[in-house]
Design a protein around this nucleic acid. Structure first.
Lengths: 362, 362
DNA sequence: GAAAAATGGGTCAAAAAAAGACCCACTGGG
DNA sequence: CCCAGTGGGTCTTTTTTTGACCCATTTTTC
């Protein structure tokens, strides 16, 4: 699709246009996810004045894209259609399509989806990523498969956005790891349940705290229930997981200051399943938790789907997906832009303010 | 190219954008043809305030598309590049591409080029049409061919825009008709000379007033000089001509009121070479002028190129090109839109104010 | 069922941007 | 040499935008 070039040319004639376009799109998207929602709530969300937001709402209402009712603002059916239909064009327009192509070359992934926006500015981006991943996830499901899901906000978003419709028969959903001291909503166990219920599938739980002494772990691993679940995990054909930054994950696991410094010295930037990766994708530290590690698992799994977003995760994503094969990577524009800025030819964008794009001059 | 749909979707989010886009494009184009040109002159041309025009100029200057110097405003090399490159995208954006496809089906022409804008609002459209026709014309030229050109402003524009570069050897340019009482610049003779000189080709002139008594005509036709030129005309392989509206042409030939009424009664709407066509493409009246008529000529000619624009010529164009084979029709958005409104599924556009496009609502 | 929170619509004044109408120094072609 | 035409600057007026409210109503919550 050679729309990009044309879009760029057209933008030279009306350089102020992309900004409003993106602003209105974000508005539309937010309403889609939060409807019915009020004017003031929206204004607070986007950190703009109430009146300013009102103007955009008025324009979009006049276009028949949204309706404003006493209970709040929502999309019209037409608005929903447009929101969905406009996505590929907007992606082309924003250069996300070429970003995807660049990332395909840069990373060791079979497929890349870049979602417009930045997780760190706009939380609906997380839902959007979840929706994208969920759609692909459903396509991958085959009768009788075991699906392993990890924890974290990203995976939770996938579960959230998964349409509630029966999947193929015989699917079993298992958590890909034990419980971490997280909020229940973001635990692998919780997410596994949610996914299974939406698809009307079976599920198993893994009651195994993540941070245990080796001795205790060995004892627990003899338990029949736990052994069974671990066997299931190891037989998974689909694996869905997120990526953590080394710093956040270490802090999260209650690492002391000494340990943090050690990780930094080792160059750890990304974390998955207790394994810490440096920027070249080498595992520099692993927290012995369960009897399996990601690397062995990944080799047997048919489809590995990764979901991660936000600028701050750029390095972590490259660390994990740069040298280890993944089948699908869903990320956001913020992370994608940062990755290309760090490791490839960077492209600045509109969603992430601060990096304005000066015209090429003559 | 499915850019149109995307453009439409994107326009739903920013409905005010197409207007500025077109306005800036017209500005750029006008400067291209009239550079160096001053702010005030431009403002007068577009019928807008000086300050308003200034803003657009400022924006485009900041984009590096044009430079403003003491002698006036002109395009930068980059601006010229953009102006040329943006054309196909703009045409898609404005729906001209689909217009071309519709016209191909509606009319009996092998190829259609619709130029953005309306001749009647913006005179550079004429030049733009001329440029488009000139480019194709040059492609058609083969060594030793005879090229017959007609008169009128449209053909004059083609001659104007023809790049001054030698064509294939042995080309002979002849006027396709005798002199009409027109301004010299628009006479077929003049245009033939201009075309020939630009291509460094030979040419012949036809000194034969268009409106003569049959008797006088017969005498003149015995002249060796004239017989030779007529023979050349009849051997032409390329024919370039415009289209006149019946009314204007009749008035132009000094028709009385009675004759005008007669033509109207006959349903004459278009005129070419003294032949008047009704809307079904039938010749309802012919002014005996030379020994040849268009129909016989067209059959022998390899390439017939027609250039005509302006809303008021819509009916005439259909009358001539609707039932008589033509190889290339160059027209403007105004005429194209009017034709489709009259004879096909009309599409309203931005160049022709007055026909705003309301959103489809829900 | 009542109270509380949130909704859209409206209004008004302040602020900012746009627009119009100039004047001025200067260039460049005739 | 002159003078029409040029861009730049500036002033005021007008329009638009923006912010900050209040109000009647609906919806939710307790």
């Amino acid at each position: 699709m050679n729309l990009d070039l044309g879009g760029d040319f057209l933008n030279l004639l009306a350089p102020e246009y992309p900004e409003v376009l993106v602003r209105r799109y974000r508005l539309l998207r937010k309403i889609y996810y939060a409807a019915p929602i009020g004017r003031r709530t929206l204004a607070a969300y986007f950190l703009v004045g109430e009146r300013m937001l009102r103007r955009d709402v008025d324009v979009l209402r006049e276009q028949g894209l949204l309706m404003v009712e006493p209970r709040g603002i929502s999309l019209t059916p037409f608005g929903e259609t447009v929101l969905l239909a406009v996505m590929p064009y907007l992606k082309s327009f924003l250069g996300l399509t070429v970003m995807e192509e660049k990332l395909l070359k840069l990373l060791k992934v079979k497929r890349v989806i870049v979602v417009p926006g930045d997780l760190e500015n706009d939380e609906v981006v997380l839902l959007e990523m979840g929706r994208a991943a969920a759609r692909v996830l459903r396509e991958c499901l085959v009768e009788g498969m075991v699906l392993a899901v990890s924890g974290g906000t990203s995976c939770a978003a996938v579960a959230d956005m998964l349409p509630a419709a029966p999947g193929p028969p015989g699917i079993v959903v298992v958590p890909a790891r034990g419980g971490l001291g997280e909020v229940a909503d973001y635990q692998a166990n919780t997410i596994a349940v949610q996914v299974a219920q939406k698809m009307n599938a079976r599920y198993r739980q893994l009651y195994l705290p993540d941070s245990l002494s080796q001795a205790t772990l060995q004892v627990l691993l003899q338990e029949k229930e736990i052994k069974e679940v671990i066997a299931l995990i190891n037989s998974a054909r689909i694996l869905l997981h997120g990526i953590g930054t080394a710093e956040e994950m270490a802090r999260f696991r209650g690492a002391g200051r000494k340990e943090m410094e050690r990780l930094a010295r080792l160059g750890a930037v990304g974390e998955v399943f207790g394994d810490f990766y440096n920027c070249r994708g080498e595992i520099v530290e692993r927290i012995p938790s369960l009897g399996f590690y990601l690397e062995e698992l990944v080799k047997k799994v048919h489809n590995v789907i990764v979901v991660a977003g936000g600028k701050r995760k750029a390095r972590a994503i490259v660390a994990v997906a740069g040298n280890h094969s993944r089948d699908l990577l869903v990320l956001d524009e913020g992370a994608a832009g940062e990755i290309l800025k760090l490791y490839g030819a960077g492209e600045d964008s509109l969603f992430s303010p601060g990096s304005s794009s000066p015209p090429p001059g003559v």
